[in-house]
Simulated assay, not measured.
Amino acid sequence: MSAQAATAHPTTARSTDIVRQIGVISAVSFMLIAAVVGVGALGGTPVQDLQDGALSASGSYLAPATQAFSIWTVIYVLMVAYAVWQALPSQRADARQRVLGWWIAATAVLNGLWLVSAQFTTLPVTVIVIVLLLVTLGWTLHLAVQNPPHGVRQALFTDITVGLHLGWVALATVANSTAWLTQIAPAEWAQAADAAAIAVIVVVALVGAGLALASGGRIAPGLAMGWGLVWIGVGRAAGEPASMPIAIAAWIAAAIVVLVPVIVTAVRFARNRT
């Protein structure tokens, strides 16, 4: 659907709109239940202890320190807030909800499926699921950019929610994939761990900068990526496996992914004023 189409505000609700609202609530509910299972609250194994510890803060050279995962609380709160907000009668026939609603629901389902796959399947399956989640989030942000928000609430409940989710999952995909490769790689590959990890961090910084340019300077993805990179640096500087070169590279990349969207926004604002 085009941006012009999504700016229209139809006044007649369809039966499919109610189905969409219920679908979003159901998807977010599934995600929350999976999260409760994932932290071990219902008798399951906590995520950091799954897959022989491969998903823990010391599972690989690109695993963030434990404190980084507190961002999930922010993402979950925003997802719940979105589910409640989009269920309001005022949002039922909103054109932007018709564009984004099912895609955001899909990200919630894939989020929950990752936790289920981590709990009950194998590490390669978790990589497949998180890549699918990353692609779905990327497409959802693309749709949000093509159909700009109208007002603070639309920006908060959709763009910021999706942006933070995307930025963090981009980092989580790197950590998840690295954890898997660490498990299957020959022991002698450890000698090149610093160089390989720094190369990946450079790619992450480029991806973060690319997201900022493609999204017109949206800062939420960069903030989430920067948060994760900072804690990767902390993990390598103060934890195991230790590597100060990786820590420094991660901190530099964090500054890049946060500053680029700020610069893009400032340039765009300056051009609009002239």
Rank of each mutant, 00 (worst) to 15 (best):
H142F: 07
P186E: 06
G216I: 08
Q146W: 04
F30R: 10
T73G: 14
H150S: 10
I219Q: 13
W180H: 13
A224C: 02
V200W: 06
S58N: 08
W114H: 09
D159R: 15
G43V: 06
Q51W: 04
L32I: 15
L213I: 15
T122Q: 11
A192Y: 11
G233W: 03
I18L: 15
A266V: 11
P64N: 05
A93Y: 14
A13K: 12
V169F: 06
T136A: 15
W251F: 02
W72R: 02
G23V: 05
G216A: 10
A266H: 12
A172L: 02
V80F: 10
L134G: 00
F30K: 10
A249Q: 03
F157P: 00
T122D: 14
P221I: 11
D94W: 01
P10S: 14
S56A: 15
I128E: 06
G44V: 05
I201M: 00
V131I: 15
V162S: 05
G235F: 01
I160V: 15
A118I: 09
I252E: 01
V80C: 05
L259W: 03
S26Q: 10
V230E: 00
T45M: 07
T182S: 13
A108E: 01
T66D: 15
A242C: 00
W168G: 01
G38Y: 05
I232G: 00
M244H: 07
Q154V: 03
P46N: 09
A253V: 04
H165F: 14
I248T: 09
V135S: 04
L229E: 00
L143G: 06
V145E: 12
T66N: 12
Q191E: 09
M1E: 12
I219L: 12
V74R: 02
P64C: 04
P186R: 11
P261I: 03
V127T: 08
S243N: 03
V24M: 14
G239M: 00
L223C: 02
A57N: 02
D17F: 13
A266D: 10
V77K: 02
T11F: 13
I263F: 14
D159E: 15
V262N: 09
G101M: 03
I22S: 08
N111R: 03
A95E: 04
V24W: 07
L223H: 01
T122M: 06
G59D: 05
M244D: 07
